[in-house]
């Protein structure tokens, strides 16, 4: 395939992705602080956290679910991210090794 054509497509896709990243920030300049949209945005983060985790657990299968739960519980007990990630990843590896 022509190198220049591939390069052109990569640049177009790169510009598209940046437009999505910056677009919301730029468009939100015209939004009222006390409007419904602003309240929606204030309340959105926690709910997006949950949806992100559910999506990740699904793509990771049962081993992913086990690892995420172990990470969450370890974090709640130790309050140390490194410990939570280590325990979660170890649990996911073990679950995967036994065929979950």
């Amino acid at each position: 395939m022509d190198d220049l054509r591939v390069l052109g497509v990569i640049c177009i896709l790169g510009i598209t992705c940046y437009a999505m990243r910056a677009g919301g920030y730029v468009l939100a300049a015209s939004m009222r602080d006390d409007g419904i949209a602003a309240r929606f945005l204030r309340l959105a983060p926690g709910n997006l956290f949950i949806a992100f985790i559910v999506g990740g657990c699904l793509s990771g299968g049962l081993a992913g679910l086990v690892g995420t739960m172990v990470a969450l519980v370890t974090m709640a007990i130790t309050a140390r991210e490194w410990a939570a990630l280590g325990a979660g990843f170890g649990a996911a590896l073990a679950a995967s090794a036994i065929g979950l």
Binding site: I53, G56, E81, G88, S96
Partner: peptide, 15 residues
């Protein structure tokens, strides 16, 4: 597994 799961686990620790 590391690629698929670590981001999810990390965000779970922030929950």
């Amino acid at each position: 597994l590391a690629a698929a799961l670590l981001p999810t686990m990390f965000i779970a620790t922030l929950l």
